Simulated scan of single mutants.
Amino acid sequence: MARLSRLNRSIAGRVAVVTGAASGMGRATAWLLADEGAKVAALDVNSDGASETVGAITEVGGTATAVVCDMADHLAIEQAVARVRAELGPVDILINNAGVAAGAPVDAAGYEDVWAAVLEVNLAAQMRLVRACLDDLKRNGDGRIVNVASTEGIMATSHNSPYTVSKHGVVGLTRALAVELGQYGVTANAVCPGPIRTAMTGDIPEEAKEKYARRRVPARRYGDPEEVAQITLSLVLPAASFINGAVVLVDGGLHAKSN
């Protein structure tokens, strides 16, 4: 039958950059975007992991390329984006997912080293990738940016201030980009995952995960990386053109719960 709606929900043929694509939410996002027909650039410092992500995509007929990139290296970011353009074309979608989880008490020895390293990867790299892709994103008036933050971007836990500050910064960067770039048709939104089963949470014993989920998460479980990726997909659809500056929680109700 004829469609009554007019907005497009297809990302087929669009070029998507996904950072931190070697595992976890980044891999799930790369796979999902490829499933929907996007041409995916899987960026990660882990070359083997990025290649595995791309191998799975190409095995089922998708289009993807693996690009090794250290998010703490400004020049490497610029070179990675140039390679994406050369191999896949101009960037239409940027998913800033790469991050590191590290914290320390504010009075700890070496605290400032932890602070600098975490802010460089979790926040400065997102800004640099946006700048490197910006001309591409603006060119057709429909570019999409999704910055992955965390529930730590709207709350805080003890002994974790470098990470918490970096994620608050991601939320602030996203809102600032939304205000600045909206006039060009570029949208910028943030996703704030809660407890998700990724490499970052892999060392937490299963019993501890279950206890935390029962006590803090109304859904009473940890989330799956694809559950985050599905929200990311929704935000990069052409039809999502009026969602701009949003901060979307994917946390099973963690933040809604008062105690």
Rank of each mutant, 00 (worst) to 15 (best):
R3Y: 14
L4H: 11
S5P: 00
R6N: 03
S10D: 12
S10E: 12
I11K: 07
A12G: 09
G13N: 08
G13E: 04
R14H: 13
V15H: 07
V15W: 01
A16C: 12
A16T: 07
A16S: 10
V17G: 00
T19H: 00
G20E: 02
A21D: 02
A21S: 07
A22D: 06
S23Y: 13
G24P: 05
G26C: 02
G26S: 02
G26Y: 01
A28W: 09
A30T: 04
A30S: 09
A34P: 04
V40R: 05
D44P: 07
V45N: 02
N46R: 03
N46V: 03
N46Q: 03
S47R: 15
D48H: 09
A50R: 01
T53K: 03
T53F: 03
G55E: 03
A56W: 04
E59G: 13
E59Q: 10
G61R: 06
G61V: 08
G62A: 10
T63C: 05
T65C: 07
T65V: 15
A66Y: 02
V68Y: 02
C69L: 09
M71T: 06
A72G: 13
D73V: 09
D73L: 07
H74Q: 10
H74A: 12
A80L: 06
V81A: 01
A82P: 05
R83L: 12
R83Y: 06
R83I: 04
V84L: 09
